[in-house]
Amino acid sequence: MLTMLIDHIGIVWFPDDSKWRMLGRLALPFYAYALVLGYFRTRSVNRYLQRTGLIALLSQIPYMMLFKQAEVNTVGTLFIGLLLLMLMDRWKGKLPAQIAVIAAAVLLVELLPFSYGAYCLLLVLLYRYSSPYWMIAWHFALNAIFVFYKGWYIQLFSLASTMLLVYLPDFVRAADRINIPRIVWRSFYPLHLLLLTAAYYLLTSG
């Protein structure tokens, strides 16, 4: 949440200062990894999917107002990622069906478009199916592809999150033990977008 907040403050108020964006690159991998953990740990995948969808819906208008982007917000992309995980397990052992589902999801998020698009979905699949031994290599390859595909050079800094997950898991677990109420986790994305949007328009109108 903190690195995401830093990223969004940087986008809105300090677009020419890359340090904000570099720190902000840590956010998406952590959220993608948490989505995969949540998929395995939740007592009801359907309710998890519904909650994720609701957060995405509540966030959409402030997201578009703040970033002036006609795209689905990042939680909306994670919602598609969660749905993809469910379908992959439903058709487990049926490789042609799984490939077709991945291709359809990638086309969906790239064409509509969704925030982070196929990058986010592939990152979710990476954390779901890769062993820790290969995780960093796969993430580096994914970043390299998107450097050539979309010119996302700054996204290379996101590799630091995977390195923390692989090499310093005790540090990550220590952060995970911080007792933050569920309502804070679930409301933070739409609420921080709403507050940043209000602050931006109040400051610019003055």
Rank of each mutant, 00 (worst) to 15 (best):
Phe79Ile: 14
Leu111Ser: 13
Met64Ile: 00
Met64Ser: 08
Lys94Ile: 00
Val101Leu: 13
Ala97Pro: 00
Glu110Lys: 12
Leu107Asn: 13
Ser115Arg: 00
Asp89Cys: 10
Trp91Tyr: 15
Leu84Cys: 02
Met86Trp: 09
Ser59Lys: 00
Met86Asn: 13
Val124Ile: 11
Tyr129Ile: 02
Asn73Lys: 08
Ile102Cys: 06
Pro62Met: 11
Ser59Tyr: 01
Thr74Asn: 09
Leu125Arg: 04
Leu112Phe: 12
Pro62Gly: 09
Ala97Met: 12
Gln98Arg: 15
Leu87Gly: 04
Pro113Lys: 05
Phe79Gly: 10
Phe114Ile: 07
Val75Gly: 01
Leu78Met: 12
Tyr127Arg: 04
Leu111Glu: 10
Val124Asp: 03
Tyr119Leu: 08
Tyr127Gly: 05
Leu58Val: 05
Leu121Asn: 02
Ala97Thr: 14
Ile102Ser: 02
Leu87Arg: 13
Trp91Phe: 15
Phe79Ser: 14
Gly117Ala: 04
Tyr129Pro: 02
Asp89Gln: 14
Lys68His: 09
Leu122Phe: 10
Leu126Tyr: 07
Phe114Gly: 04
Gly81His: 08
Ala118His: 12
Ile61His: 01
Val106Cys: 15
Phe114Arg: 02
Val101Trp: 13
Ser115Tyr: 00
Val106Leu: 15
Asp89Phe: 10
Val72Ile: 15
Ser59Glu: 01
Gly76His: 02
Pro62Ser: 10
Cys120Thr: 11
Tyr127Thr: 03
Val72Asn: 02
Ile102Val: 13
Glu110Ala: 06
Gln69Arg: 08
Lys92Pro: 09
Ile99Phe: 08
Leu121Thr: 03
Ile102Pro: 00
Ala104Ile: 11
Leu122Thr: 03
Phe114Thr: 05
Arg90Lys: 14
Tyr127Ile: 04
Gln98Asn: 07
Leu78Gly: 05
Glu110Ile: 14
